[in-house]
Design a protein around this nucleic acid. Structure first.
Lengths: 211, 211
DNA sequence: CGGGTATGTATACCACGTATGCACCCGGCT
DNA sequence: AGCCGGGTGCATACGTGGTATACATACCCG
């Protein structure tokens, strides 16, 4: 849902056609979230359907010749422009924070949540492998921060990409912290199970029999 | 993509029908990611199409529940069971870490990245509003941790939901940290622009004219 | 007994995301 | 010159995620 808003917001800068729009987006987010060109066009048509953008004309240079130039001998760039309603949407998007009431599905959290409830799954190994992978990504990010064009941001787009990169770092760090936290809690839970089993051997039924 | 895997993994516990599957999923993730029942059935038919699950029969009920209503001989519950291929998929899912090479789109990061490149957008206010909203969510999470059934996890599903809750907390904390970080960087960038403007007033062109 | 609620299945519909094909332009190569 | 590869630009098909809705039965309760 954010691609739609982002494209609309970028259109505030002025009329653009599809390819241009993608380039502007990717310039701000680096290679983090490559935008498929197909989605750009489908999103543009949906935005047009909803009255948030309108076609400004073909041949994005200066003159709009309305009569049918023949058989594509002409440049056929379809440029779009934000309407008033579109600009309203953008300002509202910026005004309201992104809601955490229904957070995006976190595949890792789902995976671990399922894993700890299934018998015969080695959760410790899953956590360790994930931790290694995430640490590797962290290294990639810090290398990018040193060497990429975000290292010394010269123009706003570089600053934007640099902030996105920081976001990835913060997120990965939080993931590592959470993984360690899970490991500790699982170890503690195993210990408590052990104590319970020793104290009241007949009452334990935590293996199998999920209900 | 993770719902499909999660449902398949839950089916490792034994044959289930759609409604049951959703209940099992939501028991592990609390009210975090409510699973629409429609998606359960479409996903099940896709899994069947791909040979990962198979229909085990109608009115199955092989599990002898204590509270079983005995009348259901001709009940039309369509139960599904994981095939060997399905079990292979699950073990592979658990064996490979979730990739960070193409991280999930972060609406907040996209939003800020666009905002800092547009003229006339008050990024400071956006950051402050978002920070307040995220802090409020954090309070909700900690209250849930104290009062909900995840407070003292008795069975594996409670532990899972508790871990998911922790994941939300860690993620929100990282978001707050990143927001503060962004604020600091933007303030610093503004200061540097100020210095540049004072030193070489003619050379500044950071307002407008994005290209 | 009649309606409200919970359980349970199924389908339509739209948005997101990716792959692929088509058309045009330009510039190098032989 | 002709050809060909690559870059640019547009469009469509297809699979998946996600939601709403229709439909049916069981149970409860006044």
């Amino acid at each position: 849902m954010s691609i739609r808003q982002a494209m609309l917001a970028i259109l505030e800068q002025g009329p653009m056609y599809g390819y241009q729009l993608r380039a502007e987006f990717e310039q701000r987010t680096g290679e983090t979230w490559p935008l498929n060109i197909g989605q750009v066009y489908t999103t543009l048509t949906r935005l047009e359907r909803d009255g948030l953008v309108e076609v400004v004309g073909h041949g994005g240079a200066d003159e709009t010749d309305e009569d049918a130039h023949q058989a594509g001998s002409d440049r056929q760039h379809v440029s779009y422009r934000a309407t008033d309603a579109g600009r309203g949407e953008v300002s509202e998007w910026f005004a309201t924070p992104v809601p955490r009431t229904q957070p995006a599905r976190d595949e890792l959290a789902i995976k671990l949540a399922i894993a700890v409830t299934l018998p015969g799954v080695d959760v410790g190994t899953i956590i360790q492998r994930q931790r290694s992978a995430t640490m590797a990504s962290l290294q990639d990010y810090t290398r990018l921060k040193r060497t990429g064009r975000a290292a010394r941001p010269a123009e706003p787009a570089d600053l934007a990409w640099s902030l996105v990169l920081d976001s990835l770092v913060f997120d990965a760090e939080a993931e590592v912290r959470w993984l360690d936290h899970c490991e500790a809690r699982l170890r503690r839970a195993a210990l408590e199970r052990e104590v319970v089993r020793r104290d009241a051997p007949a009452a334990t039924s935590n293996e199998g029999a999920t209900r």
